[in-house]
Amino acid sequence: MNNKHVAVIGGGIAGMEAASVLARQGLKVTLIEKQANTGGKLNDWDHLFPDFSSPEVLVNSLATKTKDSGVNTVYNTEISRIERAGKRFELRANQDARFYADAVLVASGFNVFDATIKEEYGYGLFGNVITSVDFEKRMKKHGQLHTIQGTDPKRVAIIHCVGSRDAKVGNTYCSKVCCITGIKQAIEISEMLPDCEVFCFYMDLRLYGSKFDSLYLQAQKRHKIQFIRGRLSEAAERADKSIQIKAEDTLQGRPLRMTVDMVILLVGMEPGASTSQLIQKNQMTVDENGFLKSANVHCARNQSTQEGIFMAGTAICPMAVNETIENARSATTEIIHFFENRRP
């Protein structure tokens, strides 16, 4: 098995974790990252749920692990094709670079939903409508949240399910991590600006993680975050740049109007942009949501529909950081089994 070569596509947390585990098992591993550094989308993130820890620490420790285990990392290289070449695979990159591998692990991640498609929410039109990703970027860069006028917001609305569970934008699935991200960001705003009222507008609160519900309770009890069960119908800018929002207070069965200083849209996860390219010239397929399809959702989650190509992380479906890392490890087990069971 030691002479076997695995190519890992994507240097986010799934790719780094899987690559380092495989390398420690004695395999030759090439980690191919399209950007100039590894870490992926977490490089823009300020704090993680549910413990408010720093993603930087996590990314750095994964980078060290990757390096120390002898993974060969290639930067600025985007894979566009995975083709079978005999018993091996040939990977083609954008600038004519080619890689050969006995197995491939696709850890190409997700795309963030483009909130400008949800036009009635005014993202890109009104300066005080931002996304959850913008919030993290601002917090990381400036450590504070200001309105476009430069003032401290006195009232903020956090909108759940933007680009998720919405047939109108073509995504009917749940992105899973947004509910808890919203609660985390609500708590952060409240800690930073104690006088600021924070409202979460939700359809269902899906707090599946073991520590998530305690964060919900904490948000209500300690931070007085208010939760309104109703989906935003529209956002409009007022003369003073504040935002008027409308929703139904579904529990009362009445329409509701509220003026807020800022709106934060909890944008969901979509299939990665490279997914459609990566499934060409091989037997890989996508599921009904456009994410890479597993051979079996229960017992072969990391196996694609093409033998020899494996998958890890959010290329399969929306996942939280800890799940992504666990999922990457499970992918390595499947790859090792693949080599062990394969006849020479």
Partner: peptide
């Protein structure tokens, strides 16, 4: 690919 249970719309920007 399975047929989704809900009819989904195309992703277009109406303003354009």
């Amino acid at each position: 690919m399975n047929e989704p249970d809900m009819e989904t719309k195309t992703k277009i920007r109406w303003s354009e």
